[in-house]
Design a protein around this nucleic acid. Structure first.
Lengths: 111, 111
DNA sequence: GTCGTTTACGGGGATCGTAATAATA
DNA sequence: TATTATTACGATCCCCGTAAACGAC
């Protein structure tokens, strides 16, 4: 299981359709997305959604998993942001001074 | 960024060495692990650890990121477990009956 | 010279996209 | 018949493992 699987699953759950999620949200194709969802279900060991002509609908397991999936993806992004802030906090004065110099020169160099 | 990167990063942080983490924990090789860590650092945009002959040591950003990484991996596993339980809960009578039988017999079998 | 990380390179596996198939309303 | 998901099939891309190189003690 990778974060990609969770992102895909969230998109499908919110769109209610593999086709829509693939084309509108994920910029990929139905078969690819269907395979990823199937792989996720295989690893977990249970169906997360029921397929039909109208699209897909989450099972009880799928609904339970969706909450965790959202949390995981959100916290992964938060972790990146925290690391970036921590890195900036380590060298505060230099970074600020440099930014000011760059902005000042670009105004002249870009007519 | 994928869960694999986080699992690798956690292992390296806890072992304090790419070599040890690769061989003992992840059953892979140094170069592969080094590439993954580098890719993670590139995406975040900052160094997470300093390399030296003694091994590796986390930077401030790395320490901050480690907490989130552990949380993310843990909750991803928790999500799987929750989904499995939800799937079992959908067919309750059989599972409950089985659990009671098991507990009842263990009291006699374990003096 | 030894230990640990990085770079180079070739091979293998997983994923992707297109096209065809199945199923249902 | 129209819409949706699945299966089949090549091709491509990413990742891995081996081998060589670099750096620091």
């Amino acid at each position: 299981m990778e974060l990609r699987h969770l992102r895909y699953f969230i998109a499908v759950a919110e769109e209610g359709s593999l086709t829509l999620a693939a084309e509108k949200r994920l910029h990929t194709t139905q078969p690819s997305l269907g395979r990823q969802i199937r792989a996720l279900e295989d690893e977990i060991g249970t169906k997360l959604m029921t397929r039909s002509v109208q699209g897909v609908e989450l099972t009880a397991a799928g609904k339970a998993f969706l909450d965790h999936a959202r949390l995981v993806v959100t916290q992964a992004e938060a972790g990146k942001e925290v690391a970036r802030r921590a890195a900036q906090a380590a060298k505060p004065s230099l970074a600020v001074g440099l930014s000011l110099r760059v902005f000042a020169t670009r105004r002249h160099a870009h007519p």
